[in-house]
Design a protein around this nucleic acid. Sequence first.
DNA 1: TGTCATTTTAAACGTGTGTTTGATAATTAA
DNA 2: TTAATTATCAAACACACGTTTAAAATGACA
Lengths: 208, 208
Amino acid sequence: MDTKTKILNAAELLFADKGFTGTSLREITSIAEVNLAAVNYHFGSKKELIKALMKRYLDELSPSLVASLEAVIKEPKQPTLEEVFTLFVEPLLSLNKLRENGTSNFLQLLGHSYTDSQGFLRWYITSNYPGIISNFTAAVQKAYPELSSEEIFWRLHFTMGTAVFTMSSTEALIDIASNDFNLQLSVADVIKRIIPYVAAGVGAPIPR
Amino acid sequence: MDTKTKILNAAELLFADKGFTGTSLREITSIAEVNLAAVNYHFGSKKELIKALMKRYLDELSPSLVASLEAVIKEPKQPTLEEVFTLFVEPLLSLNKLRENGTSNFLQLLGHSYTDSQGFLRWYITSNYPGIISNFTAAVQKAYPELSSEEIFWRLHFTMGTAVFTMSSTEALIDIASNDFNLQLSVADVIKRIIPYVAAGVGAPIPR
DNA sequence: TGTCATTTTAAACGTGTGTTTGATAATTAA
DNA sequence: TTAATTATCAAACACACGTTTAAAATGACA
């Protein structure tokens, strides 16, 4: 395995666990078993490493996700909101075939990218992968045409919050579920539990 | 104003904006216009400062919140979920009378406490203010008795995620709403928009 | 006024951070 | 094989961090 990949893999693990600010390059290069200077040599800076890490996942995720969203949009039949949200499950879970714990690592990274580092990553993502957002909005619009684009804007942000927050604390949640309810849960279980919730939230009656 | 309060106020501002890890004691004491050593003299450490900061809000919030939740629980009539969630609005907004931007600052702090600093604050909160959680759970149980305690556990966590995430990006959201939809929104508006969403999410039909 | 405890202060401590350097090693191309 | 490019390495850089120290200032009380 080449140095670049070794760094990315180690960074993924640590960043997902402890956030971007909470992880040092020395920890990363130590676990990756490469020289400290290798990060700056191969990626330029810590910031660029973070971007490269997200790119590795988003380039994998975006095409299949956008394709399935576009399919639903072009289809004559009107989808349910549950169907729209379920489109995310398979692409997300397929990340597990890429790398061990790929799904949860990616989702946790996504979570950190919204709270760490004053949102520079959020900007990077939304400006580099606009297809996901626009097609997602269109699909929701089709499933619930009475929703104004303002309402959709808000509800999709709430949904993002639900997903991102849940995923950045997945480990804790799975732990609690194991202790308090004697349930052995996986990331897939958590994802499937979210769908009815967010579908109902986005599908809430239009107020007033 | 005494030094302790000056520190707390400055810390609140900076922590809410940039997180606990992302804010240094030097920034805090500089904005508070006190000596660097004052934090360690008055609070002992950065960690204790963070706890004191959350305590200032939670001690203000907890009594009225717990009281109104208990009132709903003891009442003979069954509440709607919207009614239960609306109980949070007034206590939260009353924080604005305490300090400018009190509501959004507190909610952003809450958000950071779930992602920063490997969750030591989450532990502190849940173990020092258990009344909020248990009464909230009971109120939801009463509004939707068919929900198992497992389902409530999950859905309340999703709800927490929605609220916390939304609030940690309130500024950005208000900005976007102003640019894209020409809407001038306040924190109160955002809170009120969340309620139908989370009420519908928690009230979603029980799957399978 | 003088004494004592409390508070503030400037300076330093030790450690950890991201990044840069210049030499050495490994790989590739001619 | 030689020359040129690419990669690795140990070491140092400059800076920022939370915390500690010991002296100076302040305030309360006798």
